[in-house]
Amino acid sequence: MSIVWYLAVSGILFAIGLFGVFVRRNPLVLLLCLELLLGAGNLSLLAFDRYHAQGDGSILAIIVMVVAACEVTVGLGIVVAMFRRGQAIDVDKTRELHG
């Protein structure tokens, strides 16, 4: 089975994730949409890794997963801090970073 199919699925998933990032306003859901984007990237990395059959793409995929985990921890920390301050959990209403 050609890897073009996997790349097509990856492209569709990336477009869906991008659409979610544009339209959703809850930062929690935005983080979920970023997960979709990174997962789509991982899928095409692994598809090309299968194509070249050398294993380098797997390493890049692992690094992407590490970056995603870091992004999740920091992002969720920010969401929790926003909630504790009593701010609205809405990226449109969050206008200032200080305080």
Partner: peptide, 22 residues
């Protein structure tokens, strides 16, 4: 407007990706 723009951008990106790959 935001929804239309988002649909336009994401849709065109998806189309470009699919054209590039398929």
């Amino acid at each position: 407007l935001q929804r239309a723009l988002a649909f336009l951008l994401a849709g065109s990106l998806g189309t470009v990706l699919l054209i590039a790959m398929l």
